[in-house]
């Protein structure tokens, strides 16, 4: 029994990271209507950044996590300015955004492979004790912390998106990106904020993944699970992405404990295909109309 409980907790905390990925991906999709694979570049760059600062500068978990989050946000802003803004201002077709986002992801991956690819990088041990004992249960501290952080970050983001004027402008821009400027909204700035927020999520994702596993050039490709969660959740619905992320993480983890690590992905991926055949709008149930 307690093995299942532990698996569930592990799964949920991994699911929390999928949820971060799903929301980071979904946020940009909502505003600019393209699949932003360059989110994986932010995750990878941040994973290395988090490793280097925690290993060589400040061996403190909270400080380095916060620094990596902000760093990820800034990388998001830079990527948008470099590769998306120029084509947006020229009204380029959405396909071009997609191509640029994939190219950026590949570029970053290959740069890391060429420079740091021969080694694995392991984050320092932040805690002396890695587990809490609660009666018969043993709870991994790392997993509890991961889940807590994901939850806090998502609550923070939800507050910004729901309650602030910038958040309202982001939601307005997701249905119509031109009109907010008639209300005095600087749309370029709103897009930057969206990339900053998504980048913060990417930075935290990179840090948490780097801390849980180890850092290699292909760590960014782990956002694929988050993209799947965003789609199962019903793309366009950030809340749906969170639920789908948690479900995906928990399901994976429980399946691994029952049928093993090699069969699990096969079962998971085929279930997703079947789920989307039955319910193409995802679990949130909102039909999303892609404009182009």
């Amino acid at each position: 029994m307690h093995i299942i409980f532990q698996q569930l907790l592990n799964g949920l905390s991994l699911g929390g990271v999928y949820a971060l990925e799903a929301v980071g991906f979904g946020l940009i999709f909502n505003v600019l209507k393209f699949s932003n694979f360059s989110h994986s570049a932010i995750v990878a760059i941040s994973a290395y950044f988090g490793f280097f600062i925690s290993r060589y500068l400040f061996p403190n978990f909270a400080v380095t996590l916060l620094m990596t989050a902000i760093f990820g946000g800034l990388i998001g802003v830079v990527i948008e300015k470099l590769i998306f803004r120029p084509i947006r201002l020229k009204n380029a077709p959405l396909t071009l955004f997609l191509v640029n986002s994939i190219t950026a992801a590949m570029l970053v991956q290959q740069v890391f492979a060429a420079t740091l690819g021969s080694d694995y990088y392991t984050y320092p041990e932040f805690m002396k004790e890695t587990a809490w004992r609660l009666g018969a249960f043993t709870v991994s501290k790392t997993y509890v912390i991961m889940l807590t952080i994901s939850a806090l970050v998502l609550l923070f983001l939800s507050y910004i998106i729901r309650k602030t004027k910038i958040g309202i402008a982001i939601r307005a821009a997701s249905s119509d990106i031109r009109t907010p400027s008639l209300m005095g909204v600087n749309v370029d700035f709103i897009v930057s904020v969206a990339f900053f927020l998504a980048g913060i999520l990417g930075g935290i994702t990179g840090y948490l993944l780097g801390m849980t596993y180890s850092v290699d050039p292909f760590i960014g490709s782990m956002i694929l699970k988050g993209i799947i969660a965003a789609i199962i959740g019903g793309i366009g619905s950030l809340g749906g992405g969170v639920i789908a992320g948690l479900l995906l993480g928990a399901t994976e983890s429980l399946l691994i404990s029952q049928i093993g690590a090699s069969l699990t992905p096969i079962v998971v991926y085929s279930s997703i295909i079947i789920l989307l055949l039955i319910r193409p709008e995802g679990i949130s149930g909102k039909r999303f109309i892609v404009k182009a």
Binding site: K165, A169, R171, A172, S174, S175, V185
Partner: peptide, 21 residues
């Protein structure tokens, strides 16, 4: 603007708040 260009997914109050951006 022509065609009102109301933001359909946010509430009436939020449309107004955006007007006061």
């Amino acid at each position: 603007p022509e065609g009102r260009k109301i933001f359909p997914t946010i509430t009436v109050a939020e449309n107004l708040i955006l007007g006061a951006f």
